[in-house]
Design a protein around this nucleic acid. Sequence first.
DNA 1: TTGTACGCGTTATCAA
DNA 2: TTGATAACGCGTACAA
Lengths: 331, 331
Amino acid sequence: MAKLSGLSVSTVSRVINNKPHVSEAKRQRVQEAMDALGYSPLQAARQMRGSGSGNVAVVVPTITNNFFAHLVDSIERTCSKYAYRTLIIQTYGERAGEEEALNLLRMQHADGAILCAIENQWELIRKFTQYGRLVACNEYNEDHEISMICGRQYEGFQKATEYLLGKGHQRIAYCTGAKALVLQPKGLNIDSDRYRGFIETLSKAGKSADPDQMFTRIHTMEDGKRVMKKILNLSLQERPDAVIAGSDEVAAGMVIEGLANGIRIPEDIAILGVDDQPLASCIQIPLTTIRQPIAQEGEYAAKEMIRQLRDGAEDTIRKELDLELVIRQSA
Amino acid sequence: MAKLSGLSVSTVSRVINNKPHVSEAKRQRVQEAMDALGYSPLQAARQMRGSGSGNVAVVVPTITNNFFAHLVDSIERTCSKYAYRTLIIQTYGERAGEEEALNLLRMQHADGAILCAIENQWELIRKFTQYGRLVACNEYNEDHEISMICGRQYEGFQKATEYLLGKGHQRIAYCTGAKALVLQPKGLNIDSDRYRGFIETLSKAGKSADPDQMFTRIHTMEDGKRVMKKILNLSLQERPDAVIAGSDEVAAGMVIEGLANGIRIPEDIAILGVDDQPLASCIQIPLTTIRQPIAQEGEYAAKEMIRQLRDGAEDTIRKELDLELVIRQSA
DNA sequence: TTGTACGCGTTATCAA
DNA sequence: TTGATAACGCGTACAA
């Protein structure tokens, strides 16, 4: 035993774990020895005895996206507060990346994974629940088999659409990062909920969306510029007078490209972002945007993970947070 | 033994570690059994036998800053390529945060740490070299006791200053995130090297810097706006005709505040950023900026860490990368 | 080529 | 209140 404080392993173990049945005198002696040797228990050995690794994996598409950077920040802050370390895994939108992350659970490098990007079918992901805890953050999980934290996308997009309609806009274009426009029952899919919030509000107002002005797979500022170019090629009759961009980055691209072509924003075309990234308030025309409560989402997700890990909670929760419409100039 | 493939532990171990002295037949049988059971060796047990944790800690002030997000991205990419996991630690500019990270080494949660933000004195940090490998990334280390990867700050700022002087600017203001303007011998401190590159180029041209127009502790876009306000309060005689901002964020703040006050950029005041963040090219007046080779820095730092960890390299290296002046509109 | 036995640091159990 | 001992999964020295 490396703890040559002159006492037995069990006494030392009891002191470390604050267990009873140790005299104050011995407790002192052990403490002193620990301080003197700069000793600290080895997690690896503990893990072999059944306690976990103390690591939480957080899975995001990429951390260079400001939205996810803030999410990771919030998760890391919370985990570290509860003495859990944060392992970061980027998927880059690839299924393989996500599988790699899930394998961390199987290999017991992490006790749980917070999924902020779901690439694979639930079929595949489910298999890994036997190895560790999973929490979905800013993502839905169809079968409600794992806890999830997300924003009320439907209501947020509803609010935004109502706002645009209230401003008198007639033809509203729609951009999304999704690969296709899908409509599933509410609460199953984040993209579907957003689209549903938009399109159902439109129909309630007796309007409908023009299929030619629904753009999919739109992610970056460059994508936004491209879409704006397409829009500007349309005749004035066809041209939308408002756009719900899929993110602030896309919105920023559209604003920049629009201004460069002499379009007035919001007078000619109103542009509405999503996320409320720092970028949103600092471009030429500050963005009106649907604010996602990123910090809260991350904190709740991390706390839920810790609840399951540390407190051994077996039940799953579903926490929904309100989105807020932040009104600036672009719409 | 959990490996109930019907063979002995050592045979299994030999297969797992690709060691010789195993017949092809047995090797096959073990492989099959492993696949069938979805078995994978437990790192925790290996660690007890002396191999490391397989984790690399990466220490940044905050990941929400785009610069560091890209650095972490690049490091994580590289580490994962070599089967190392990336633990993220944010210091928020606090010494305590850095110590916490270094303690990961002591507790053997990580085999090494890549320091992208050095908060404490080297005196303190040195103590932790006994517990694991350290690599400084985008930071200098005074005593050259650990490997470091960084940009040639002096030359970069020299180039930028020469550029501004070449444009005929007479009074150049200077912003830095550092707590004070320090001048140390070249190669010891990143802030000092930058400042030296600026000020020495100035003197070579027979000019000097106005102490009243050297701003310290300038980090954020808000800080940039504040500095611009101060500058606009000066009389036209005193007012600088160019500014080297400490970062693109600061530069962006200055551009926005300047434009809002009717200043023409770069005609009235030229503004030069640092980093070349995505932000730089998308604000109203695209930023001329000193580009840091972030992706390369991160990759080199990670590779150096792996060289030390996996290959057991004991020597330290010092890799310096060129900074590039990206010329857009703001200067 | 193959298998056995031991020890790494920790916790749980049981005996003193 | 204490301490001795077994067990976790792995790698390795050594024996077969």
